[in-house]
């Protein structure tokens, strides 16, 4: 059933999938219990001539006991889901790991403007480089994304990284990831942002360290 998800290439993606499957197992059990009961009761207790329904008197203790027990079970499962979830959420959204590389992504109708800090590693300096819809990162390095928007709300979505973050005008939102496998992955926009929302798309190119070096050289020697 792993092919329910696109291939995961981020360090935290597996945790998210795991929670998904954890909830899946719980809910699928409930699904079969409940639907099973509905179906079997519907068959077992279908109307037969001259046979009356068993009369269960109104609101007695036994009924309440049943209800409370069920409520308790559900509550415990809920809390279990919450705790597992909180751990993963903390890992992803807690405090941000110190990053090896920082890129600024500015969303606008209907593009990702991606600014690289260049050799000095600082944004907003002369050697910055801007590309459209192309995010080049080295594999196995923690990348910090500084996400902004020029006009409306967009949402940076990297299915293979299980990463999604809205870009809100007037705010600077930070996100991070560490890609685990070189390759070319799609980077669509996931929040309705106008007539060009469908098709607002970019590419994440995860390169091996060598390839990344090569790519960087080309570009920053191409400068000046």
């Amino acid at each position: 059933m792993q092919n329910w998800f696109p291939e995961n290439v981020s360090t935290f993606g597996a945790d998210i999938d795991e929670i998904f499957w954890f909830i899946f197992r719980i809910t699928v059990v409930w699904f079969f219990i409940t639907e099973g009961l509905i179906l079997s009761f519907a068959i077992k207790y279908r109307r037969r001539e001259g046979q009356r329904a068993t009369y269960v008197k109104g609101n007695n203790r036994r009924q309440l006991a049943w209800i409370l027990m069920l409520g308790l079970i559900v509550l415990l499962l809920d809390l279990w889901i919450d705790i597992r979830g909180a751990q993963v959420w903390g890992k992803i959204k807690g405090q941000m790991p110190s990053s090896d590389l920082q890129v600024q992504i500015t969303a606008k109708q209907f593009n990702w403007e991606i600014v690289y800090p260049g050799p000095d590693g600082k944004l907003g300096t002369g050697d910055d480089l801007q590309l459209e819809n192309e995010l080049h990162v080295p594999v196995g390095k923690i990348v910090r994304i500084v996400l902004q928007s020029k006009d409306v709300i967009h949402s940076l979505f990297l299915p293979n990284l299980r990463l999604k973050q809205d870009a809100v005008p007037g705010r600077e939102i930070h996100a991070w990831f560490e890609a685990t496998k070189p390759g070319k992955y799609e980077m669509p926009c996931a929040e309705l942002c106008g007539f060009g929302h469908s098709g607002m798309n970019g590419w994440l190119i995860v390169a091996t360290p060598e390839d990344y070096e090569k790519w960087a050289k080309e570009h920053w020697s191409a400068e000046k």
């Binding site: 009961l37 509905i38 009761f41 519907a42 109307r47 068993t54 269960v56 209800i67 409520g71 809390l79």
Partner: peptide, 29 residues
């Protein structure tokens, strides 16, 4: 997230009350 998931408790009760209503009934479809 916690409040959201907890809300399944009251709905669980309602759902099971419905199912229990079927139990031992004389159901015509």
């Amino acid at each position: 997230s916690i409040t959201t998931i907890i809300i399944s408790v009251p709905f669980a009760l309602i759902v099971f009350a419905m199912i229990a209503t079927l139990w031992g009934g004389s159901i015509s479809f």
